[in-house]
Design a binder for these strands. Structure first.
Length: 315
DNA sequence: GCAATTGCATGATTT
DNA sequence: AAAATCATGCAATTG
């Protein structure tokens, strides 16, 4: 047991064929209803925004940046459009379960009124993913080129909330830089999407380069302790928390067991039941998972990013 | 009894 | 050098 129920979108709706859907999304052929009325403006803005996310993913300190960068697939823009317009989609669209971002505590009600609530647990039941920021899906320009990755030194550390372990206290503040601190060239745009991103609406809270054991049969991912403690709900008990995370690419909500193991005098944080997610996205060692938090309603979003090995020597 | 899952210990690596 | 972190293997548990 323990596999996630992403297949039914959190408990309802028709089953999805993830691989097919994923492939279709990549090919931009998924028949989402009324997908993309031509934007009146903001195309370039959106590119900047997506570039921002690409940069987020690519410039973590842990990545061997000289050899590897992380591709940014059109899926992201697709997803974003979907998520931001989720409420607007007609019911014929197989939208994920509305309360899919609910954060459930595993049968330990005494935890419920505790610090977890500071993470907006209650608001997780909010029926909407996000305000309808965007009403148009801009065209997808294709993968972000590697040139977006140059000058990593001027890019901010995206996630520094992990430096603030006191965020485990009652009031969680994310003292972190966000895409709002992107380089000037990325900030000149003025689209609503850019503003949304700059406002820190979606914030990378955790990034992990997957190891061999992460992608093994067990389907559990060791999370960086610092980031886990800083940005994920506190684990006060041994019992796992069930974290509902929207897939950034697919209209799917994954259920992960978030738990810890005692380890020496410390803890190891584990994201369990991740096998299906890993498999669906074909993630392997060296690939990356990125967990975002939507600051406003306190929701989690997860993305798997394949590592793309650049030819550093080949022309 | 077996396979799957969970929990823990150990050693390597990093800070 | 010591402590902390984490990758990994294996034992224990569960279904």
């Amino acid at each position: 047991m323990g596999q996630m129920d992403g297949g039914d979108g959190g408990g309802g709706g028709p089953p999805y064929h993830y691989q097919a859907l994923l492939a279709a999304v990549h090919q931009q052929t998924v028949p989402f209803p009324n997908p993309f009325p031509a934007p009146s403006s903001g195309f370039a803005d959106w590119s900047a925004s997506t570039s921002a996310f690409t940069s987020l993913a690519a410039h973590s300190s842990t990545a061997p940046s000289n050899a590897v960068h992380y591709s940014f697939s059109p899926c992201y823009a697709f997803w974003t459009h979907y998520m931001l317009n989720k409420n607007a989609y007609p019911t014929s669209f197989p939208a994920p379960h509305d309360d899919h971002l609910r954060l459930a505590n595993n049968n330990h009600p005494r935890d419920a009124p505790g610090p977890a609530s500071s993470y907006g647990v209650e608001s997780f039941t909010s029926p909407s993913m996000a305000p309808n920021i965007c009403t148009h899906m801009p065209p997808i320009e294709g993968p972000i080129s590697a040139k977006e990755d140059k000058k990593p030194e001027i890019l901010p550390r995206v996630v520094k909330s992990s430096d603030e372990l006191e965020t485990r206290n009652s009031n969680v503040e994310f003292h972190s830089e966000t895409v709002g601190t992107l380089p000037e060239s990325k900030q000149g745009h003025d689209s609503r999407a850019t503003k949304l991103l700059n406002s820190g609406e979606y914030q990378v809270i955790l990034r992990k380069e997957l190891t061999k054991s992460d992608v093994g049969n067990v389907g559990r991912i060791v999370l960086p302790k610092k980031d886990a403690e800083a940005s994920l709900p506190p684990l006060l008990q041994r019992d796992p928390l069930i974290l509902h995370m929207d897939d950034m690419v697919l209209p799917v909500t994954w259920k992960f067991k978030y738990r810890y193991w005692p380890n020496n005098k410390s803890r190891m944080y584990i994201l369990d039941s991740a096998g299906e997610f890993l498999k669906t996205h074909g993630l392997q060692a060296g690939d990356v998972i990125i967990i975002y938090k939507n600051l406003a309603p306190g929701k989690f979003i997860i993305r798997g990013e394949k590592a793309i090995h650049q030819q550093t020597t080949n022309p």
